[in-house]
Design a protein around this nucleic acid. Structure first.
Lengths: 177, 177
DNA sequence: ACCTGAACACCGTTCAAGT
DNA sequence: ACCTGAACACCGTTCAAGT
Protein backbone atom coordinates (compact mmCIF):
# COMPACT_ATOMS: atom_id res chain seq x y z
CA UNK A 1 0.00 0.00 0.00
CA UNK A 2 1.78 3.18 -1.14
CA UNK A 3 1.69 6.07 1.27
CA UNK A 4 0.67 9.56 0.07
CA UNK A 5 3.25 11.17 -2.18
CA UNK A 6 5.46 13.70 -0.42
CA UNK A 7 4.45 16.22 -3.07
CA UNK A 8 5.01 19.77 -1.91
CA UNK A 9 3.60 22.80 -3.67
CA UNK A 10 7.16 24.06 -4.01
CA UNK A 11 8.02 20.94 -6.02
CA UNK A 12 5.13 21.73 -8.35
CA UNK A 13 6.44 25.27 -8.85
CA UNK A 14 9.96 23.87 -9.37
CA UNK A 15 8.73 21.56 -12.10
CA UNK A 16 6.72 24.30 -13.77
CA UNK A 17 9.70 26.67 -13.82
CA UNK A 18 11.94 23.92 -15.22
CA UNK A 19 9.50 23.42 -18.09
CA UNK A 20 9.29 27.19 -18.56
CA UNK A 21 13.05 27.45 -18.96
CA UNK A 22 13.35 24.35 -21.15
CA UNK A 23 10.37 24.75 -23.44
CA UNK A 24 8.69 28.09 -22.83
CA UNK A 25 5.48 29.17 -21.16
CA UNK A 26 3.20 27.57 -23.72
CA UNK A 27 4.61 24.18 -22.75
CA UNK A 28 3.61 24.67 -19.11
CA UNK A 29 0.33 22.85 -18.60
CA UNK A 30 -1.13 21.03 -15.66
CA UNK A 31 -0.56 17.84 -17.62
CA UNK A 32 3.09 18.46 -18.51
CA UNK A 33 3.91 19.57 -14.97
CA UNK A 34 2.21 16.48 -13.59
CA UNK A 35 4.03 14.25 -16.07
CA UNK A 36 7.39 15.72 -15.05
CA UNK A 37 6.54 14.85 -11.45
CA UNK A 38 5.42 11.34 -12.44
CA UNK A 39 1.90 11.99 -11.22
CA UNK A 40 -1.54 12.41 -12.73
CA UNK A 41 -2.87 15.98 -13.01
CA UNK A 42 -5.36 15.58 -10.18
CA UNK A 43 -3.01 15.87 -7.18
CA UNK A 44 -1.73 19.23 -8.45
CA UNK A 45 -5.07 20.84 -7.75
CA UNK A 46 -4.81 20.14 -4.04
CA UNK A 47 -1.27 21.61 -3.99
CA UNK A 48 -1.50 24.79 -6.03
CA UNK A 49 -5.21 25.37 -6.57
CA UNK A 50 -5.39 25.69 -10.33
CA UNK A 51 -3.41 26.78 -13.35
CA UNK A 52 -3.74 30.50 -12.66
CA UNK A 53 -2.59 30.12 -9.08
CA UNK A 54 0.38 28.14 -10.36
CA UNK A 55 1.30 31.05 -12.65
CA UNK A 56 1.05 33.41 -9.66
CA UNK A 57 3.35 31.18 -7.65
CA UNK A 58 5.82 31.03 -10.52
CA UNK A 59 5.89 34.85 -10.80
CA UNK A 60 6.38 35.16 -7.07
CA UNK A 61 9.29 32.71 -7.16
CA UNK A 62 10.95 34.53 -10.06
CA UNK A 63 10.76 37.92 -8.32
CA UNK A 64 11.57 36.68 -4.83
CA UNK A 65 13.96 38.81 -2.77
CA UNK A 66 14.18 41.35 -5.52
CA UNK A 67 16.56 43.92 -4.09
CA UNK A 68 18.64 44.02 -0.94
CA UNK A 69 17.62 46.83 1.40
CA UNK A 70 19.59 50.04 1.02
CA UNK A 71 22.47 51.11 3.22
CA UNK A 72 21.57 53.48 6.00
CA UNK A 73 23.53 56.42 4.65
CA UNK A 74 22.58 55.92 0.99
CA UNK A 75 20.43 58.74 -0.43
CA UNK A 76 17.16 57.45 -1.85
CA UNK A 77 17.72 58.47 -5.49
CA UNK A 78 20.88 56.38 -5.58
CA UNK A 79 19.10 53.40 -4.05
CA UNK A 80 16.15 53.90 -6.40
CA UNK A 81 18.50 53.64 -9.34
CA UNK A 82 19.96 50.36 -8.09
CA UNK A 83 16.50 49.03 -7.29
CA UNK A 84 15.10 49.91 -10.70
CA UNK A 85 18.01 48.34 -12.52
CA UNK A 86 17.70 45.19 -10.47
CA UNK A 87 13.97 45.03 -11.15
CA UNK A 88 14.63 45.37 -14.87
CA UNK A 89 17.36 42.73 -14.72
CA UNK A 90 15.05 40.27 -12.99
CA UNK A 91 12.13 40.92 -15.28
CA UNK A 92 14.30 40.47 -18.36
CA UNK A 93 15.44 37.11 -17.02
CA UNK A 94 11.85 35.87 -16.95
CA UNK A 95 11.48 34.07 -20.25
CA UNK A 96 7.95 35.27 -20.97
CA UNK A 97 6.40 38.65 -20.33
CA UNK A 98 2.94 37.17 -19.95
CA UNK A 99 4.16 35.83 -16.64
CA UNK A 100 4.92 39.25 -15.18
CA UNK A 101 1.56 40.75 -16.10
CA UNK A 102 -2.01 39.99 -15.33
CA UNK A 103 -3.31 40.15 -11.81
CA UNK A 104 -0.10 38.89 -10.22
CA UNK A 105 0.24 41.89 -7.96
CA UNK A 106 1.48 40.31 -4.79
CA UNK A 107 5.01 39.80 -6.05
CA UNK A 108 5.28 43.52 -6.82
CA UNK A 109 3.97 44.69 -3.50
CA UNK A 110 6.73 42.68 -1.86
CA UNK A 111 9.32 43.92 -4.32
CA UNK A 112 8.52 47.57 -3.67
CA UNK A 113 8.93 47.40 0.10
CA UNK A 114 12.67 48.20 0.30
CA UNK A 115 12.34 51.18 -2.04
CA UNK A 116 9.48 52.65 -0.05
CA UNK A 117 11.57 52.12 3.08
CA UNK A 118 14.54 53.96 1.53
CA UNK A 119 12.35 56.92 0.63
CA UNK A 120 10.80 57.06 4.08
CA UNK A 121 14.22 56.90 5.72
CA UNK A 122 15.12 60.09 3.88
CA UNK A 123 12.04 61.84 5.20
CA UNK A 124 9.64 61.45 2.27
CA UNK A 125 6.02 61.13 3.35
CA UNK A 126 4.35 57.76 3.00
CA UNK A 127 1.94 58.71 0.23
CA UNK A 128 4.66 60.40 -1.82
CA UNK A 129 6.95 57.44 -1.29
CA UNK A 130 4.30 55.00 -2.50
CA UNK A 131 3.55 57.13 -5.54
CA UNK A 132 7.22 57.54 -6.45
CA UNK A 133 7.75 53.82 -6.10
CA UNK A 134 4.71 53.07 -8.19
CA UNK A 135 5.89 55.35 -10.97
CA UNK A 136 9.32 53.73 -11.12
CA UNK A 137 7.87 50.24 -10.93
CA UNK A 138 5.19 50.72 -13.58
CA UNK A 139 7.64 52.47 -15.88
CA UNK A 140 10.13 49.62 -15.50
CA UNK A 141 7.62 46.81 -15.97
CA UNK A 142 6.20 48.58 -18.98
CA UNK A 143 9.62 49.19 -20.44
CA UNK A 144 10.69 45.58 -20.11
CA UNK A 145 7.44 44.18 -21.43
CA UNK A 146 7.56 46.47 -24.43
CA UNK A 147 11.25 46.11 -25.20
CA UNK A 148 10.95 42.33 -25.09
CA UNK A 149 8.44 42.51 -27.93
CA UNK A 150 10.57 44.86 -30.00
CA UNK A 151 13.61 44.44 -32.18
CA UNK A 152 15.51 47.36 -30.71
CA UNK A 153 19.13 46.32 -29.99
CA UNK A 154 19.93 45.67 -26.35
CA UNK A 155 22.51 48.47 -26.10
CA UNK A 156 20.02 51.01 -27.39
CA UNK A 157 17.31 49.78 -25.07
CA UNK A 158 19.76 50.02 -22.16
CA UNK A 159 20.58 53.62 -23.01
CA UNK A 160 16.92 54.51 -23.45
CA UNK A 161 16.05 52.98 -20.10
CA UNK A 162 18.88 54.85 -18.41
CA UNK A 163 17.62 58.13 -19.83
CA UNK A 164 14.04 57.45 -18.88
CA UNK A 165 15.24 56.71 -15.36
CA UNK A 166 17.21 59.98 -15.35
CA UNK A 167 14.15 61.96 -16.32
CA UNK A 168 11.86 60.29 -13.82
CA UNK A 169 14.34 60.60 -10.96
CA UNK A 170 15.02 64.25 -11.83
CA UNK A 171 11.30 64.95 -11.68
CA UNK A 172 10.74 62.98 -8.50
CA UNK A 173 13.76 64.54 -6.80
CA UNK A 174 12.81 68.12 -7.63
CA UNK A 175 9.29 67.50 -6.40
CA UNK A 176 10.47 65.92 -3.15
CA UNK A 177 12.35 69.10 -2.19
CA UNK B 1 -24.71 25.01 -56.17
CA UNK B 2 -23.82 27.73 -53.65
CA UNK B 3 -21.21 30.24 -54.79
CA UNK B 4 -18.21 30.99 -52.53
CA UNK B 5 -19.09 32.95 -49.46
CA UNK B 6 -18.35 36.66 -49.72
CA UNK B 7 -16.30 36.36 -46.54
CA UNK B 8 -13.84 39.22 -46.20
CA UNK B 9 -11.00 39.22 -43.72
CA UNK B 10 -12.46 42.44 -42.31
CA UNK B 11 -15.65 40.54 -41.47
CA UNK B 12 -13.59 38.00 -39.57
CA UNK B 13 -11.95 40.78 -37.58
CA UNK B 14 -15.35 42.39 -37.00
CA UNK B 15 -16.73 39.17 -35.59
CA UNK B 16 -13.68 38.61 -33.40
CA UNK B 17 -13.91 42.13 -31.96
CA UNK B 18 -17.62 41.71 -31.31
CA UNK B 19 -16.91 38.56 -29.30
CA UNK B 20 -14.05 40.36 -27.53
CA UNK B 21 -16.40 43.13 -26.39
CA UNK B 22 -19.26 40.79 -25.49
CA UNK B 23 -17.43 37.96 -23.76
CA UNK B 24 -13.76 38.84 -23.40
CA UNK B 25 -10.58 37.71 -25.08
CA UNK B 26 -10.71 34.17 -23.73
CA UNK B 27 -13.96 33.65 -25.63
CA UNK B 28 -12.32 34.55 -28.93
CA UNK B 29 -11.41 31.30 -30.65
CA UNK B 30 -11.29 30.28 -34.27
CA UNK B 31 -14.35 28.17 -33.57
CA UNK B 32 -16.44 30.86 -31.87
CA UNK B 33 -15.55 33.41 -34.56
CA UNK B 34 -16.47 30.93 -37.27
CA UNK B 35 -19.73 30.09 -35.51
CA UNK B 36 -20.67 33.77 -35.30
CA UNK B 37 -20.15 34.00 -39.06
CA UNK B 38 -22.16 30.81 -39.66
CA UNK B 39 -19.17 29.04 -41.13
CA UNK B 40 -16.86 26.19 -40.21
CA UNK B 41 -13.41 27.13 -38.85
CA UNK B 42 -11.59 26.12 -42.02
CA UNK B 43 -12.37 29.14 -44.24
CA UNK B 44 -10.97 31.50 -41.61
CA UNK B 45 -7.48 30.21 -42.23
CA UNK B 46 -7.50 31.39 -45.82
CA UNK B 47 -8.76 34.84 -44.72
CA UNK B 48 -6.61 35.72 -41.72
CA UNK B 49 -3.84 33.13 -41.67
CA UNK B 50 -4.14 31.78 -38.16
CA UNK B 51 -5.16 32.72 -34.64
CA UNK B 52 -2.10 34.83 -33.95
CA UNK B 53 -2.49 36.80 -37.16
CA UNK B 54 -6.12 37.37 -36.20
CA UNK B 55 -4.99 38.85 -32.88
CA UNK B 56 -2.57 41.11 -34.76
CA UNK B 57 -5.35 42.29 -37.04
CA UNK B 58 -7.59 42.98 -34.03
CA UNK B 59 -4.87 45.07 -32.36
CA UNK B 60 -4.33 46.99 -35.56
CA UNK B 61 -8.03 47.71 -35.87
CA UNK B 62 -8.28 48.90 -32.28
CA UNK B 63 -5.37 51.32 -32.68
CA UNK B 64 -6.22 52.47 -36.16
CA UNK B 65 -5.88 56.21 -36.88
CA UNK B 66 -4.60 56.80 -33.41
CA UNK B 67 -4.04 60.52 -33.37
CA UNK B 68 -4.74 63.26 -35.86
CA UNK B 69 -1.59 64.93 -37.14
CA UNK B 70 -0.56 68.07 -35.28
CA UNK B 71 -1.24 71.59 -36.42
CA UNK B 72 1.55 73.23 -38.26
CA UNK B 73 2.25 75.87 -35.64
CA UNK B 74 1.88 73.57 -32.63
CA UNK B 75 5.13 73.04 -30.69
CA UNK B 76 6.04 69.36 -30.42
CA UNK B 77 5.82 69.04 -26.63
CA UNK B 78 2.22 70.17 -26.75
CA UNK B 79 1.40 67.73 -29.55
CA UNK B 80 3.27 64.96 -27.73
CA UNK B 81 1.06 65.50 -24.72
CA UNK B 82 -2.11 65.17 -26.78
CA UNK B 83 -0.71 62.15 -28.62
CA UNK B 84 0.25 60.38 -25.42
CA UNK B 85 -3.12 60.98 -23.81
CA UNK B 86 -4.89 59.72 -26.90
CA UNK B 87 -2.71 56.61 -26.96
CA UNK B 88 -3.51 55.95 -23.32
CA UNK B 89 -7.23 56.52 -23.93
CA UNK B 90 -7.24 54.05 -26.82
CA UNK B 91 -5.25 51.43 -24.97
CA UNK B 92 -7.53 51.67 -21.94
CA UNK B 93 -10.51 51.07 -24.21
CA UNK B 94 -9.05 47.75 -25.36
CA UNK B 95 -10.70 45.25 -23.05
CA UNK B 96 -7.65 43.05 -22.56
CA UNK B 97 -4.03 44.04 -22.18
CA UNK B 98 -2.82 40.78 -23.69
CA UNK B 99 -4.04 42.16 -26.98
CA UNK B 100 -1.72 45.18 -26.95
CA UNK B 101 1.40 43.19 -26.13
CA UNK B 102 3.35 40.43 -27.73
CA UNK B 103 4.91 40.88 -31.11
CA UNK B 104 2.10 43.10 -32.43
CA UNK B 105 4.47 45.88 -33.39
CA UNK B 106 3.05 47.04 -36.64
CA UNK B 107 0.13 48.89 -35.07
CA UNK B 108 2.58 50.90 -32.97
CA UNK B 109 4.86 51.80 -35.80
CA UNK B 110 1.87 53.31 -37.58
CA UNK B 111 0.65 55.03 -34.43
CA UNK B 112 3.98 56.72 -33.81
CA UNK B 113 4.24 58.30 -37.27
CA UNK B 114 2.46 61.61 -36.53
CA UNK B 115 4.47 62.19 -33.36
CA UNK B 116 7.75 61.61 -35.14
CA UNK B 117 6.55 64.01 -37.84
CA UNK B 118 5.72 66.69 -35.25
CA UNK B 119 9.20 66.40 -33.72
CA UNK B 120 10.88 66.57 -37.10
CA UNK B 121 8.84 69.63 -38.10
CA UNK B 122 10.31 71.41 -35.07
CA UNK B 123 13.83 70.60 -36.18
CA UNK B 124 14.57 67.53 -34.06
CA UNK B 125 16.88 65.04 -35.80
CA UNK B 126 15.39 61.77 -36.98
CA UNK B 127 17.18 59.51 -34.51
CA UNK B 128 16.34 61.73 -31.56
CA UNK B 129 12.74 61.97 -32.72
CA UNK B 130 12.43 58.18 -32.95
CA UNK B 131 13.98 57.74 -29.52
CA UNK B 132 11.76 60.35 -27.91
CA UNK B 133 8.71 58.79 -29.49
CA UNK B 134 9.76 55.34 -28.37
CA UNK B 135 10.21 56.49 -24.79
CA UNK B 136 6.77 58.09 -24.65
CA UNK B 137 5.15 55.10 -26.33
CA UNK B 138 6.79 52.43 -24.20
CA UNK B 139 6.12 54.39 -21.04
CA UNK B 140 2.46 54.77 -21.97
CA UNK B 141 1.92 51.15 -22.99
CA UNK B 142 3.63 50.01 -19.83
CA UNK B 143 1.63 52.36 -17.69
CA UNK B 144 -1.69 51.22 -19.11
CA UNK B 145 -0.84 47.55 -18.97
CA UNK B 146 0.26 47.84 -15.38
CA UNK B 147 -2.53 50.10 -14.17
CA UNK B 148 -5.11 47.77 -15.69
CA UNK B 149 -3.83 44.99 -13.46
CA UNK B 150 -3.83 47.14 -10.34
CA UNK B 151 -6.48 48.35 -7.96
CA UNK B 152 -5.30 51.96 -7.93
CA UNK B 153 -8.30 54.32 -8.33
CA UNK B 154 -8.67 55.87 -11.78
CA UNK B 155 -8.23 59.45 -10.55
CA UNK B 156 -4.96 58.58 -8.87
CA UNK B 157 -3.71 56.71 -11.93
CA UNK B 158 -4.63 59.72 -14.07
CA UNK B 159 -2.64 62.06 -11.83
CA UNK B 160 0.32 59.68 -11.76
CA UNK B 161 0.31 59.40 -15.52
CA UNK B 162 0.17 63.16 -15.92
CA UNK B 163 3.17 63.56 -13.63
CA UNK B 164 5.15 60.86 -15.38
CA UNK B 165 4.43 62.62 -18.65
CA UNK B 166 5.58 65.93 -17.15
CA UNK B 167 8.87 64.41 -16.07
CA UNK B 168 9.54 62.68 -19.36
CA UNK B 169 8.66 65.74 -21.43
CA UNK B 170 10.77 67.98 -19.20
CA UNK B 171 13.74 65.67 -19.72
CA UNK B 172 13.16 65.29 -23.44
CA UNK B 173 12.67 69.05 -23.92
CA UNK B 174 15.81 70.06 -22.04
CA UNK B 175 17.82 67.53 -24.00
CA UNK B 176 16.45 68.67 -27.36
CA UNK B 177 17.78 72.23 -26.79
C1' DA C 1 -12.59 26.21 -56.14
C1' DC C 2 -14.29 26.28 -51.86
C1' DC C 3 -16.64 24.47 -47.95
C1' DT C 4 -18.19 20.76 -44.37
C1' DG C 5 -17.51 17.17 -41.13
C1' DA C 6 -14.43 14.66 -38.91
C1' DA C 7 -10.24 13.98 -37.09
C1' DC C 8 -5.62 14.74 -34.49
C1' DA C 9 -3.27 16.21 -30.73
C1' DC C 10 -3.76 18.96 -27.32
C1' DC C 11 -5.97 21.95 -23.09
C1' DG C 12 -8.15 22.74 -17.69
C1' DT C 13 -10.81 20.46 -14.62
C1' DT C 14 -13.47 16.86 -12.25
C1' DC C 15 -15.21 12.41 -10.69
C1' DA C 16 -16.03 7.51 -10.05
C1' DA C 17 -13.40 3.84 -8.99
C1' DG C 18 -9.60 1.76 -6.98
C1' DT C 19 -5.88 1.00 -3.13
C1' DA D 1 -7.10 9.59 2.54
C1' DC D 2 -5.19 10.00 -1.65
C1' DC D 3 -4.28 8.70 -6.28
C1' DT D 4 -5.35 6.81 -11.21
C1' DG D 5 -7.90 6.50 -15.40
C1' DA D 6 -11.37 8.18 -17.82
C1' DA D 7 -14.28 11.56 -18.98
C1' DC D 8 -16.29 16.35 -20.24
C1' DA D 9 -16.09 20.33 -22.72
C1' DC D 10 -13.12 22.80 -24.90
C1' DC D 11 -8.72 24.42 -28.03
C1' DG D 12 -5.78 25.30 -33.00
C1' DT D 13 -5.21 23.20 -37.12
C1' DT D 14 -5.70 20.10 -41.10
C1' DC D 15 -7.56 16.85 -44.47
C1' DA D 16 -10.52 13.72 -47.03
C1' DA D 17 -14.75 14.01 -48.91
C1' DG D 18 -18.41 16.37 -50.88
C1' DT D 19 -20.70 20.15 -53.99
Amino acid sequence: VPSPLPLESSAVVDAAIAILRDQGLDAVSMRTVAARLGVSPFPLYSRVGNKDALLDAMAERLLDDLAPPGDDGEPWPQYARRWAHELRRRLRAVPDSRLVLGPRRWAYVQASAPLVAALRRDGVGTDDAVRACRMLMWATIGFVVTESGSDVPAAEADALYERQLDYLLAGLTSEAD
